[in-house]
Design a protein around this nucleic acid. Sequence first.
DNA 1: TTGAAAGCGCTAACAC
DNA 2: GTGTTAGCGCTTTCAA
Lengths: 346, 346
Amino acid sequence: MVTLKEIAEICNVSATTVSNVINGKAKTSEETKNRIMEVVRKTGYNPNYMAKGLRVKRTRTIAIIAEDLAQFTSPPIIENIMAYCESRQYRATVYNLRLYDRWSDTWYNDEEEYKSVFEPVLRDVLSAQVDGIIYLAGHCRVIKSFSDDFQLPVVMCYALSDSPGIPSVVIDDEKSSWEMVSHLIKAGHKRIGFVGGRVENLHTIERLKGYQRALYENGILFDPSLVFYGRWDRESGYEGASKLLTQGVTAIFAISDRMAGGVYDYLYEAKVAVKDKIAVAGFDNEAISQYFRPALTTTELPLAEIGKKSAELILNRLEKKDGGRSAYSEPYVIKVPCTLKDRNSV
Amino acid sequence: MVTLKEIAEICNVSATTVSNVINGKAKTSEETKNRIMEVVRKTGYNPNYMAKGLRVKRTRTIAIIAEDLAQFTSPPIIENIMAYCESRQYRATVYNLRLYDRWSDTWYNDEEEYKSVFEPVLRDVLSAQVDGIIYLAGHCRVIKSFSDDFQLPVVMCYALSDSPGIPSVVIDDEKSSWEMVSHLIKAGHKRIGFVGGRVENLHTIERLKGYQRALYENGILFDPSLVFYGRWDRESGYEGASKLLTQGVTAIFAISDRMAGGVYDYLYEAKVAVKDKIAVAGFDNEAISQYFRPALTTTELPLAEIGKKSAELILNRLEKKDGGRSAYSEPYVIKVPCTLKDRNSV
DNA sequence: TTGAAAGCGCTAACAC
DNA sequence: GTGTTAGCGCTTTCAA
């Protein structure tokens, strides 16, 4: 590994001059500039990131702490964070908590266990001297992993922060749900079953609100017996459908595509035609939804946008381009809208 | 950020001693050891990774250069590389070429364009002073991105290297395909259509070999008109099925689940029952395959194992636990077997 | 068992 | 325009 000093020696200039040329800093004569660049190219010189970081105390690197890389929402978000960082000459490095991998979806009840994995990772991140952190959640909830006086800029991605200093980027669950239910109503449905995720889950809560608002705006009574709470998975959808059908629904809105898959299962077994007899809508626009027969009408998650916004937010903060909001006076939440994918199940 | 030197001052010892205690190096009296650890805890001291890396010239970090994070095979592999690295006190950091994102699947024809994205990333990786590199391909082929005298240990993951110094970890395409076709034959099929990916693709080539071997071993003539080459996607599967059905096949083996989805599409339109009339088998065991109706018999990719093996390989190399194979005399290829998922389409 | 000094590769501050 | 000096936070001799 050739060093800057060696380049300097070869060129008969000082290390400073080489440094200046490489970083386009001070004024240097074209002559020496060319001479140096030539040698840099020939030797295949690469600046030592460690040495530079140690000296300047800025690494132009942000950490993405992902709760789980394998969560289907994570890779597209990460990919777009990285793409945006690249466009502004930053680096993003991924740390993976592997929360689902370790405890499927039970983990978030146990604060202690969570800490035992989060804290070592955070130390690692801090050791690496990153300039900022994007915490990428696996699902939306209020996350209090960072103390109020945490030393680094943080952006909460796909979840809410409880700290005024940490802005959040989330999807607009309420509005997206409202849109889908309005769509269902426009198609003539009045008794619409709602298959939610876990009761206490924020996605569930917000989407239920959207459901209720759509009913209200159309003068339809909200019937609580049309609401079923599942666990996001296919089996829950099946259960939900079996319960809801006895309530005489003409449409079912399952708030995950997987649960919608379970609804299809039940309907198939019961020989009830999707769309013709019962309309079904999903949420997420996972790959599976296109393979359902009939193809599922669902809501596309704005994952790319979420990634980009989060990255933008943190980089602006790092470069103080955020209009002085460095310390937000109130929780700062960006809600990114989803888009309805109208396919063939409604 | 409190530094080691500050810890030393507080404790009235030298920096050396603190360093020794933290790294469990030299013999230190219990007394001072406790005193130091206490202060370390209280101050929340984190060693500076930059400073340490600069000094010791080993970072205990490996780079994963992923061709595309959004490729469905990537996240599970990465997750398992990270998990294994963690178990041996290493760090893995992800670099993303975003090849598919940039050029979908046309990119690999253009060496120049490829270099224009690979090379800056490689410089970045080198700058970061990682100890080794795992190159994670999006699909199997021979990759010659690293010169023969490349300075760092490299492992090729999910692809083949052309260099004796770079071992590869890939799936056993031939055997897995052989297994599936044997399974089909055992179920009574003699005229089995093969829906491949692109002709020149290594997965296609190997799986076709497995297909042929299974036929051969069962005394079935290989009929070239039963082979169709697609582009891995759903539409290709549809096309393939339409061609193959005119050849009187009783089973179709599509070597990606997505293409199998297209086969289902065609069969559905043509009102031909999957399984009862035509057996269908896929490959990949993507999430979608479970939602097909009937559920798709397919082959599960050993992604976890591939990740783990790759990590193991490179860490062993870094720590010379590879039985002196530091320079392999011949290309060293590890083929990881897949497992057949027998569901309901055969 | 502990410490002093040197130096990893780089850049900031300042002098020339 | 270019060079000198000092030092970022750590570990590694080597000496005490």
